[in-house]
Simulated assay, not measured.
Amino acid sequence: MDIRSVDLNLLVLFDTLMQTRSVNRAAEAMGLSQSATSGALARLRGVFDDALFVRTAAQMEPTPRAQQLAPVVRRVVQTIQQEILQSPHFEPAQAQRSFTVLTPDIGEVAFLPGVLRRLQHEAPGVRLHAVSRARAAAADALEKGEADLAIGFFPDLQKAGYFQQSLFTTTYECITSAANTALGERLTLKQYLAVRHVVVRPDGREHLLERFLDAKGWQRQVTLELSHFMSLLALLPGTELVATVPQDIATAVGRHIPLRTLALPFKPPPLQVQQFWHRRMQNDPANRWLRGLFHEVNRREAGARLPV
């Protein structure tokens, strides 16, 4: 017998006849006419080359072949109903699984603490794996399912095939050691370009501010380039270095070392922080829950800063 020739609806009819032992009651249970049910029973008999159900004075009785098939068909029908046709769902309180989130080191400091507190109470079996990837690799990781979300500034993901959701908009400011007395309370553009800068390029890539400065033709005096924002904790104290960073960086670094914060002598471009996911995961219940949690915990109103 070729499985392609078997109509699964016939198995449902078989299972219903085993329970009702009546063509009329089977037709009513399946929402079919009696003639359609009789026709389906004829096809079912042809598939198995057996009468399967024989009319007696009281009801339709199964043949030995039907009795042999009954438990197997019951399992098949129940599997289809309970495991294949059921709408997918995700129960965070019972879940035992891991999610991978792409985010730079500052994202680990800014976005994860609030989420972890929620997981402790709402989904204790859920584990997070935070990793950093270059922009080109981020798209590939989401597409292949190696990562569930990307959170931060990922302009390369603003394209077809990826969904995005805004978390907040922030801007840039200057930070330097609190012991740096070489600068006044305000910076002029000339001073800004002349001071010694430390620049952070996660994964060696340029960022929005650098493109803005290049477009203006403004060249800074870059003394040090770093790959990780949190390295500023060790490198700013005791120096006159200045770093131009997103406000969240300034807040996070200021939690650990004394800082001076200076406004920029120009209006910097706004920095849109978003979360991204591949279109394959749009209707996945687990991914929908995860991105909903990150959005709820990390969404901010315009102008709001990361809590100190």
Rank of each mutant, 00 (worst) to 15 (best):
C174D: 05
L306P: 02
R75T: 09
Q81L: 15
R75D: 00
P88Q: 08
E301H: 14
E206P: 12
Q81K: 14
E28S: 10
I106P: 03
M281S: 15
V12G: 10
G184Y: 09
Q165M: 01
D148K: 11
H228C: 07
R43F: 03
L290S: 01
A110L: 02
A286Q: 13
L235M: 14
S98E: 12
A141Q: 10
G161N: 02
V12K: 14
Q272K: 14
A36M: 06
Q164N: 10
V109I: 05
G145C: 11
R117K: 14
I106G: 03
Q221E: 04
N24G: 09
E108T: 03
Q59L: 12
T223G: 04
Q164A: 06
V115N: 10
Q165W: 11
A215N: 02
A147C: 09
R133V: 08
R45A: 05
G238S: 04
Q86D: 12
L259Q: 05
L262R: 05
A304Q: 09
A139T: 08
V200G: 09
N9Q: 11
T63K: 00
L189Q: 06
T20W: 13
R127Y: 04
V199A: 01
K144F: 14
K267V: 15
T16H: 00
A252M: 00
L259I: 06
Q86H: 13
A252Y: 00
F48N: 06
E28G: 07
A57Q: 03
I80F: 14
H278R: 05
D2E: 12
L157A: 01
G152M: 11
A136P: 02
F99T: 02
P92D: 10
M281A: 15
K144M: 14
M281C: 13
V308A: 15
M18T: 01
V101D: 06
D284H: 09
R300A: 01
T239W: 02
P237Y: 05
K216L: 00
F48V: 00
F276R: 02
A29C: 01
R4W: 12
A147F: 10
R300T: 01
E122G: 13
P285T: 13
S231H: 15
Q165E: 03
S132G: 14
Q191G: 06
